[in-house]
Design a protein around this nucleic acid. Structure first.
Lengths: 217, 217
DNA sequence: GGAAGAACGTCGCCGTCCCGACGGTTGATT
DNA sequence: AATCAACCGTCGGGACGGCGACGTTCTTCC
């Protein structure tokens, strides 16, 4: 599928040949998950890695009251590869939040191919490093911990072409690891400055520049 | 050098052949840096990646008052690979804190070799994912943000075989993105519970189990 | 051995955020 | 159209941590 070639890693770098692509698809399986179901759970033996084709997946660690959302990823992201290559159990759980379609790469099939085809391997490497980069950015914003700037930053990154973000305040709160009330208050301040408009499950970015300024303050 | 074979990625996984090792060393150069000097700076074109052989390196972003320490890494860690493979400028700065010895891998020399040798590529992949995993753990502990548990966790990870940690409270503070005073107070509480002993630029872990319990509380 | 500098210990003030609670609003379901 | 669940807006209390300040102790380097 052409989508795979476009989305996996950087398209312009170490281009995948048709043959490489065949091999990648050959070791993958496209599966579908309903909202709330798990792709894998923390502690399970890591027998496969996943590439998200559509929908959002929430990565978290711990259970019950100690559940912490590590990140939420969407189309083009890779999951479970740390554990799979590291040869241990999964270190976090992955739960579908939408209707989700993912490619599943079984370890047994994938590893021998990777060992033979450097181009695919390089592509996977780049995908992993991209995750690392975004996680590092997250660290920065968690350290610099005023909720206002965190919210501003998240809105800047999450906004689509029309400047709209379709997330509930509760969702934003869990994403940032803060309380819903604080998110509400932050959005209130942004609204005062006419940087955003808020509605039911929806936020419209009016002034991206101001948002950026607040995020990096 | 045998050190390279042992330290890079997982030794037990996709073992490097002698020939692979030759190639890796052939594209590397062992250089030495004095404390305070930079391996690279944010914004510079990413022409090389680095593997730390000895000493500690601090990774940070921003300058002046907006400087934020992303992480501090030591022997066996890889630096600058995100930018190098991503084909953009460095996204953070790397500064030696000790006397540091690092292998420098020039992009020009390394990339063609990687494209030809899957074993090396796989090794690099695993190294990158290990970084990702440790950064994800950091996110968890930053979200779960009582300074006490953060300090407990850091001590648990940073302690050597004898249970000693040689870091100043100021260093720990910047590492966690909190104030020195808070670190001091947290250490005081740990001392009260006889979990640690504190001295000048040195902390001795007495009760790792209690530390672990506090870290995950 | 003495001076300078770095690191440690402690105090008080104040801002930010978490938590619990409650009422009003919107959207979906039947 | 009615009902219900999810979501939004807001208030007050309490805990935690940042910041400035000051004194003490430990190192290092003349």
């Amino acid at each position: 599928m052409a989508w795979l070639a476009r989305s996996f890693g950087r398209p312009d770098y170490a281009p995948l040949t048709g043959a490489d692509l065949e091999i990648l698809i050959g070791s993958a399986e496209l599966i579908s998950k309903y909202p709330g179901t798990h792709l894998f759970r923390e502690g399970d033996p890591a027998l496969a890695a996943f590439l998200v084709e559509s929908g959002d997946v929430e990565i978290y660690r711990g259970t019950g009251s100690k559940r912490r959302v590590v990140s939420r990823v969407g189309s083009g992201s890779v999951l479970g590869d740390i554990a799979m290559f590291g040869d241990g159990p999964y270190i976090s759980s992955a739960q579908a939040v939408d209707r989700v379609r993912v490619f599943r790469f079984d370890k047994d099939k994938l590893l021998p191919e990777l060992a033979k085809h450097p181009a695919i391997c390089l592509r996977w490497l780049v995908a992993g490093l991209r995750q690392l980069e975004s996680t590092q950015r997250r660290v920065i914003h968690l350290m610099h911990k005023t909720v206002l700037s965190q919210v501003a930053d998240l809105l800047g990154e999450e906004a689509d072409a029309k400047g709209e973000v379709r997330l509930s305040q509760t969702t934003i709160a869990t994403l940032l690891g803060v309380s819903r009330q604080s998110v509400n208050e932050a959005l209130g301040r942004l609204r005062e400055q006419s940087a955003v408009e808020t509605g039911y499950r929806q936020i419209r970015v009016l002034d991206p520049d101001r948002l950026e300024a607040i995020a990096t303050s």
